[in-house]
Design a protein around this nucleic acid. Structure first.
Lengths: 150, 150
DNA sequence: TGCATATGGTTCGAAATCGTACTAAATAGT
DNA sequence: ACTATTTAGTACGATTTCGAACCATATGCA
């Protein structure tokens, strides 16, 4: 890396951070009081990816400590949005199942974000996104791998 | 936006979020105990952008509530990394000045992140970044503007 | 089998984040 | 000049995040 390129890379991570912050705020504007972006992410993951995962699997998927996941799942359970059941194969573990209320809340929030997403999509067309998203996925994978190495 | 493109946009924000989280963790690995990424960001901003800003200006720059900024500045001040002086023109306000200790800590951390940044740069060349970063900046500006409209 | 170790999850305490309510100083409108 | 409103910052309380220590169950190995 040429010395003079460093600012470019710093700028990259800077923009990433701000976009993350702004998009999180926009999502949270659509969530009922008491729920934040991480809670929604768990519901969304249950719908889009898979139901019945263990808390630890989820903690790894979201790159948060397991204690954080314990807490977040507690919030979702108290809201009746997920159910925690004992794991059938492992007495130490649990399974996280989304409830009907959880699924419908998730769907409603996805709906509610529609207009904002459409406005964004009008400015940044799918072609652009199809170039950028895979690159970002590569970068995410690289950083993730680098993290494991230490 | 075609209905079928929605997942692409969700994926975009998802990748952004994870990259932000991973890069924050990597930065924090280089910080002395008791300091987190937001603290460093303030020091970095003071060096790169401008010294002597008011707390409110900083809160706006980082898109955080002013109470959060009050807290963060308190931490930095207790560590002797910044000085808070009364604002010469406005009795309600203050100025945030970085100290020598603050500047040198910031420089050391930038140095320390060098290898990780170089490794990243080896995978993702400056050409790629010069395509992506301006796009991200546009997106950030768009989201920022959209936020103000409400 | 029996015991050491590893793994999944919780508890607990510290720090960060943030909304609400407040104080003090500045500005606007009369 | 005088009062009302706005603005900068802080105090406080609720929630989130996260590391350290802990408990219970599972696994590895003799």
């Amino acid at each position: 890396m040429d010395r003079s390129d460093a600012p470019l890379y710093f700028a990259f991570f800077n923009e990433i951070g701000i976009i993350g912050q702004l998009s999180r705020a926009m999502l949270e504007a659509e969530l009922p009081k008491g729920l934040l972006a991480p809670h929604f992410s768990i519901l969304n993951h249950a719908v889009r990816v898979k139901d019945g995962q263990t808390p630890l699997t989820l903690a790894n998927a979201f790159q948060v400590p397991k204690t954080t996941m314990t807490h977040s799942l507690g919030v979702l359970e108290r809201h009746g949005l997920i159910e925690l059941k004992p794991h059938p194969k492992d007495g130490r573990s649990k399974q996280v199942w989304i409830t009907e209320a959880g699924r419908s809340l998730r769907d409603r929030v996805v709906e509610a974000t529609g207009p904002a997403l459409a406005a964004f999509a009008q400015q940044f067309d799918p072609e652009t996104m199809r170039e950028i998203v895979p690159k970002l996925a590569e970068m995410r994978a690289f950083l993730d791998a680098a993290r494991d190495e230490d």
